[in-house]
């Protein structure tokens, strides 16, 4: 399995999560499944609604954001592939909080933001037994027709 993400969308994620620093930010990855690959065609930025004073190490979406993104994907023949969020001044390694709250079959792109600048992105998938995350290959590829 690979996650394929156009560089323009990756750059957009980087700029958005830099703007959220020193807090965490996040959003959805929407696209299609091609054999085992997940092809991102668009992203959706979603506000962090966790308690303000905890946002430096916690991220939470409003349930309405999931509903809207899933309805949009279902109605337009796309797939809600996964979500991205930042780890301010921390490596892009899933935390225990990430694992406990994770869904299977859902891509987790984590971006490490160091001192306000995007540093590195890593991509993960929850193991089916929920015991751990496993790394997913990540490819930036521009030859993709982007949606919406």
């Amino acid at each position: 399995m690979r996650l394929v993400l156009p560089p323009t969308l990756h750059t957009g994620i980087q700029r958005y999560l830099e703007s959220a620093f020193p807090n965490e930010g996040g959003g959805f990855l929407i696209g299609r499944v091609d054999n085992e690959d997940r092809i991102v065609t668009e992203t959706r930025f979603v506000e962090n609604i966790f308690e303000t004073e905890e946002q430096y190490h916690r991220y939470l979406m409003d349930s309405g954001a999931f509903q809207a993104a899933e309805d949009y994907a279902d109605a337009n023949g796309f797939t809600l592939i996964g979500y991205f969020h930042s780890h301010p001044d921390s490596p892009a390694i899933p935390s225990e909080f990430d694992r406990v709250h994770a869904l299977p079959n859902f891509i987790y792109l984590i971006l490490s933001v160091q001192a306000g600048r995007a540093d590195h992105s890593l991509v993960w998938l929850l193991a089916d037994d929920r015991s751990r995350f496993v790394p997913v290959a990540f490819e930036e590829k521009s030859s993709i027709i982007q949606g919406g």
């Binding site: 965490e24 916690r58 979406m61 999931f66 935390s95 709250h101």
Partner: peptide, 10 residues
């Protein structure tokens, strides 16, 4: 009915 997960990270 609908199952809507809370998407959270940290």
């Amino acid at each position: 009915l609908r199952i809507i997960p809370s998407i959270a990270g940290g």
